[in-house]
Structures are given as C-alpha cells and as structure tokens.
Nucleic acid binder design. Structure first.
Length: 551
RNA sequence: GCGCUCGUAGCUCAGUUGGAUAGAGCGAUAGCCUCCUAAGCUGUAGGCCGCAGGUUCGAUUCCUGCCGGGCGCACCA
C-alpha cells in the first residue's frame, strides 16, 4: 500500500538521523479503530530502551518529525503506551483511484514473491473414481492459491500427480475385470477390497459391449486391459470436472513414467549421499527418525516393491531437479501425519526448510437443509463434485470452499449455496460489482460521461468519511493479497471482498451518485465506484469467481 | 498411549504473524424503498477469547500443564 511505503520510508529516514537502528519487529499497520488514524507504528516502544527515553516521548518526537517531513501526513501523534498514529490527507487517499486506474487488472499485484519459482501440486486424487466434494475443496484452494501467488509475484506452475503405478491401480483393474466377468455370467468370488461404485459397472459394461470375448482373456492380461481403460476413462472425467470448475493444472505428472525413467534411483542416491539410508531385514530403509519423524520408514519392501513414500520422495526430488525453489503441496488433512516424513526427505535432499510447504484441507461436511449427506466412497453413495456443481453452480461452490481457513472443517449446505439470498456471501460480493456496473451503465445512458483517465482535480468531491473508508479499503488490497500469499491462506481474500462489498453497499445506501445534484461530485463518485468495481473484479478473479455485469 | 490440530457471541466463523475499548454474517429484535438494482441499508441485545500458570511495557495470539472435540500413528496409498 502506498501509505505503508510512505510511512516506512519517512520513518526510516528519521531513525537514521537519530542514529537509531530499524528494529526487525517494527510494525506499520492499519489502525483497527479509525480514531487512531490511518496507520500506526510501534517503533517508539521497541526503541525506547535504546534511545533512553520513554516510549510516549519518543513517539511524540517521531510524530513531529513526520509532520515536518511529509506533506501527505495531515496528523501524527503519540497515543496509548507509545504508538505513533498517522493520518494521511484526504488528497492522499483520493489518489488511490488514480493508482487503480493506472494498474487496472494488475492492481493489487506485488513483487513480494520476487519471481521465486514455485511448484504447486494439488488434487492429485487417485484415478480410481470421480472427484467428490472433498477433492473440490482442495481443487478450489489449490487453483486460487496459484492465482494468488502469481499476483504476489511468484512464478507458479501447477501440477497433478497421477498415482498410476501402485496397488490402487491393480485394485481398479481387478474391480472392473470382476464386474465384467459377473456381467458375462461367469462365477465370481469377490475379494475384501475392491471398488464398488456404479461407475465401475458402467466401464465394465462398455468394455464388454465393445468386446464380448473380454472374459476369455487370461486373467493378468484382462485385468491389465481393464485397468488401462478404467484409468483413462476416469482421468478423462476428472479433467472434465476440473475444467468445469475453472481449475487448471499445467502438467499431469505420471508416477509410472517417473519410476520407469529412473527417478526413484536418482532420489535414493541423493538420500544415500547424505547417509540416511540403510538395509535391514531384506528391506531398504530411510532413517527419518533422526530428522524429526516418529520412526524410520521403509522405501523398498522385502518383496522388492516400492512403497508409496519412495515414489513420492522421487517425485519431490524430481521437482527440485526441474529447477523449482519452492514446493507447495495441498493434501487432505487426514495425511497430516505424513508431513514430518516428507519434511525429513526434503532435509535429507539438503533443501532448505522453507522450500517445502503443505497446505492441509480439512473435511467437507456436505449438508442438505442442515442434515448430513452421506459421503462414503465404499458404499458408492458419495456426492460427486460434478453433482454439486450442477446443483449450486461454480461461483457459489468456489466461494463457499474459499471462505474458510482450509485446515478447519467446512459445513457445505447445498440448499444454502443454492439460495440467491443474503445468507449466501457470494451473491453479496457479486451484487456489489453488478450494482456499480449498473450505475455506470445508467450514467452513460444519461449522457454523464466519465473519461477513461480521471485527474486528481476531478476527485475533489470525495470528502466524506464513507469516501475515505472505501478508499482506504481499496488501498489495502495489495497488502491483503501479499499477506494472504505469505500465509498461503486464500480465505483472507474472501473476507476482504466481503468487507469491501459491505462498505460499498453502505455507501450506496447513504450517498447518491447520479442524483447527487452536482455534476462534479457525480463524476468524482463515479470514478470512485469504478475503482471499487475494478478491485472487486481483481479479487474475484483470484478466487476464480465471476464478476457479473448485472444480476 | 504418542503425535498433529482445533476450542472466540445462541449458531457458523474472522482476528492483519505480540498491540490500544476482541469483530463479521446468520439467528433474535426495532426500523428504512415517490430516490441510480431492497440479492440492499440502519439501530439494539448478545463475550471469564476452554481452564491454570509462565515469558514482557502489553497475550485471543508465543511457551508449559490440564480439560474437551477432530485427525493420524503400515514393509497401505
């Protein structure tokens, strides 16, 4: 935010003149209470000891200096235990509109990420069945996080890891194969573990229709063929669901391909080089315990096959080899026990601790009219993502998923999400945008024309406390995005948008724009609203939610 | 049993990485359209921030210990 920068620069100069060092814990942040001005800093409290004077006095001194030095600072004083509160002039805040116009779609972007190369991996559901709502939440969070990090100046690539090599795939093949045998009227004995969804039967039936001799194949070949077909079909469905949900993965990364190209050996070598692997009881182990895990883990089992952990390590090793500085994984919260293990692997690969982050996604409780909807995969009665999207729409679903901290459980009420009412926050925000666009359209109809580029003089009519509240909120957008990116927490953006929409609706109720009875004021307010609409649109874009022209 | 995580208004949740008198929505309740979109706005009520210690100028936030909920503890993925 311009205000933060202005204050930071000025304060730094003052500290230098006073011969004081800039304390690392210095905070410059918007005041919670408007009475405390626009921004406040705790610098005086941190420096009181060093400067040998009481914090109140020091804050007073800083305040006086700021007033002398910055023409944009209208008021500055000491308050409370030693805060220095600063209020900027109205003219300063009005210029925010010009900033928005100049940056347009890029408003809110920052260089916080400094171009760091990030690989964001998300969803990565096994291709053994359609995506359900839980995957949907991970998809929404992952996709929006990618958008957010890009805004914050990171170079982000996105990836979906396909577990197409392990036991789950064999089980999928077996499940379809057995269904096919059953459909062909052959005797079938069902194992304890297999996939029971309707879609398995559909695939088996389609295969049987295409080739009635399928059941005559030798077991191994039949199962292999079933597996291939089922995986392709399911993966196609997953891609279609994600695309419908406006979720994009730039690369689909195959576990099988990784294993076949020797990625596992490369990773094992890397771990071995740092001395963390050993053989015991016919198996190949990774000494994760000394790296913070509960116990050591097996990489290659005594029967010679690889564990899931082994190929996953190889995958992460490969990501680093491809030149990414930072890996972010989005996992279901039920995998949180897996984090220390993976962290151990990162350490053993001699990568810095902050080069790997996991964002955990908690359970989604799907409700209908307050009553839980069963989501058991085994029983085959789960609610698919596609079904939910059909029912509530992409915008409502995305906003719902993104409105809460991702690692706390989410109640998703289908009826509520479907409602076009104030209970449904997505419409509250979208309505704010649509309202502004309606006013701008109406203005054009009336022949009130706002130039594409407005001047500072034109904004002079913005002088009420509601004008200032909106301007300050708009100005805080960049900081909000940067903080959200830093915390890997997209929900901050949703909250910001709800707040901005709230201010807009209040403003709209209190101040007339076209009927202001004063052309200069009308134009100034139109310019302000247009800037607000731009920010709403930019924010909604981060969430992957549309910004409608009318509702 | 061990580990992770959460505990904030009647309900669902925020809380800007330790700041000043703890916020929002819903619900309850009292109001607001001759006026640019009422899918909106305004007011009121509602709190031992799970409990007890500690760290310091200052704790809902950090540390420790309890209490209570969720999850995880495989040569599964």
């Amino acid at each position: 935010m311009r205000a933060t920068e202005t204050l930071r620069t000025a304060l730094a100069a003052i500290l230098k003149e006073e011969g004081l060092a800039w304390p690392a814990k210095t905070a410059i942040e918007p005041s919670r209470d408007p009475k405390h001005g626009d921004l406040s800093t705790n610098a005086a409290m941190l420096l009181a000891k060093e400067a040998k004077c009481n914090p109140r006095e020091l804050a007073r001194k800083f305040a006086d200096r700021l007033l002398e030095r910055c023409p944009d600072v209208e008021k500055a004083d000491a308050a409370g235990p030693g805060f220095c509160n600063v209020t900027f002039s109205q003219a300063f805040w009005r210029r925010t509109v010009l900033d928005v116009e100049a940056a347009a779609g890029a408003y809110g972007s920052s260089g916080a990420g400094a171009g760091r190369k990030v690989l964001l991996e998300y969803v990565s559901a096994n291709p053994t069945g359609p995506l359900h709502v839980g995957h949907g939440r991970g998809a929404a969070v992952g996709d929006s996080l990618a958008r957010l990090l890009r805004k914050a100046g990171y170079a982000v690539d996105t990836e979906y890891y396909i577990n197409d090599a392990g036991r789950q795939m064999r089980l999928l093949g077996l499940s379809v194969w057995l269904r096919a045998l059953e459909l062909a009227g052959r005797p079938v004995s069902w194992p304890e573990d297999y996939y029971r969804g309707e879609y398995i039967i559909d695939i088996a039936r389609a295969m049987l229709d295409a080739d009635p001799h399928l059941p005559d194949l030798p077991e191994t070949e039949g199962q292999e063929r079933c597996c291939q077909r089922a995986m392709n079909e399911i993966l196609t469905g997953i891609k279609a669901d994600l695309s419908e949900f406006r979720v994009e993965h730039q690369r689909w990364f195959s576990e099988k391909t990784l294993v076949e190209s020797g990625g596992v050996d490369a990773a094992f070598n890397a771990l071995g080089r740092s001395g963390y692997t050993y053989g015991k009881e016919n198996a190949f182990w990774f000494a994760t315990e000394q790296l913070g895990d509960d116990k050591d883990r097996v990489l290659k089992k005594s029967d010679g096959s690889l564990t899931y952990f082994a190929t996953d390590i190889a995958y992460h090793h490969d990501k680093f080899e491809r030149g990414y500085d930072r890996l972010i994984d989005i996992w279901g919260a039920d995998h949180h026990g897996y984090v220390p293990r993976m962290r151990a692997a990162i350490t053993a690969m001699e990568r810095p601790r902050d080069s790997f982050d996991v964002v955990l996604i908690q359970l989604v409780n799907l409700l209908r009219d307050g009553k839980p909807v069963s989501m058991s995969t085994r029983a085959g009665t789960f609610e698919t993502l596609a079904g939910v999207l059909r029912e509530v729409g992409v915008d409502a679903a995305r906003f719902m998923f993104l409105s809460r901290k991702s690692d706390s459980p989410l109640d998703f009420d289908l009826e509520l999400a479907k409602q076009r009412s104030l209970d449904n926050p997505v419409y509250y925000v979208q309505y704010a945008h649509a309202r502004i666009r309606a006013v701008l359209r109406r203005a054009a109809e009336r022949g009130v024309s706002l130039p594409d580029a407005v001047s500072e003089e034109m904004l002079a009519g913005l002088d009420t406390s509601e004008d200032m509240a909106l301007l300050r909120k708009v100005a805080a957008f960049e900081d909000t995005l940067a903080a959200a990116a830093q915390a890997l927490a997209v929900h901050h953006v949703s909250h910001y948008l709800s707040e901005l929409a709230g201010l807009l609706h209040s403003y709209y109720a209190k101040h007339q724009v076209l009927l202001a009875g004063d052309t200069a004021r009308t134009l100034a307010r139109l310019a302000l609203l247009r800037a607000v609409a731009q920010v709403l649109r930019n924010g909604l874009e981060v969430l992957g939610v549309s910004a409608p022209e009318s509702m």
